[in-house]
Amino acid sequence: MESNNPLLVMNKIYSGYGEVKVLKGVSVDIFDKSITCIFGPNGAGKSTLLKTIFGIVPVETGTILCNGKNITNLNPMTILEMGISFVPQGRCNFPNMTVLENLEMGGFTIKRGTIEREIDDVFAKFPILCQKRKDLAGNLSGGQQQILEMAMSLILKPKILLIDEPTLGLAPNLVNDVFETIINVNDQGTTVLIVEQNAKKVLEISDFAFVLDLGKNWMHGTAKEISENPKVKLHYLGL
């Protein structure tokens, strides 16, 4: 699973909104076909890290490399074309459009003609979406909407999927569905970078983990190492 050259490298990144820097020298390596999770207390800069990769939050210093190419401060459209998709926190579907139309919007940048095939692929992976293809996205349950949003991001067949707090506000039984979906996505070859509050659950499915605190790296390692770390156990796993 582990290869020597990471797919995505963030090197000593300082980034944030205006004069306030949220990330203060964060370095993260993401390996191909892995699931990497990021957790930490509120204000640690977890969401900002994903937005920085996707080009929504500007980088002040530091570089981000994807497959060896410098992607620092490119705009979201270009990042998307590089094969990085983003599922942000909160609802990012179109509530008054059908599931099918939402998926079409997810594949907005795909050329005409190929989109149908991509959507069929997604329906094969997510039978629940196929079942509800004519329903309005806003009428789906919270978990289904989360799955729809991941599916919308997967239409473009990204190499890397960035996911921000997918289980926020979901009922416990739906949380498992979402995690299962993430495992499936990863099994099909997509590298996943996930930010999650539920450290215990996310460590179970991850290969690697990074713990951030106040915009800096606090700890990193394989998910196994991290989940056995006494400090992590104390602060995040409630053991």
Binding site: F54, I56, P76, M77, L80, E81, S85, F86, V87, P88, R91, C92, N93, F94, P95, N96, M97, E101, E104, M105, G106, G107, F108, T109, R112, M152, S153, L156
Partner: peptide, 22 residues
């Protein structure tokens, strides 16, 4: 496609950025 994108933009403008809708 563009008509659907109009509806998408009116329902969730921020999300359009995520999917590369111009």
């Amino acid at each position: 496609k563009i008509g659907k994108a109009m509806r998408a933009a009116s329902q969730n403008r921020d999300a359009c950025l995520i999917y590369g809708i111009n």
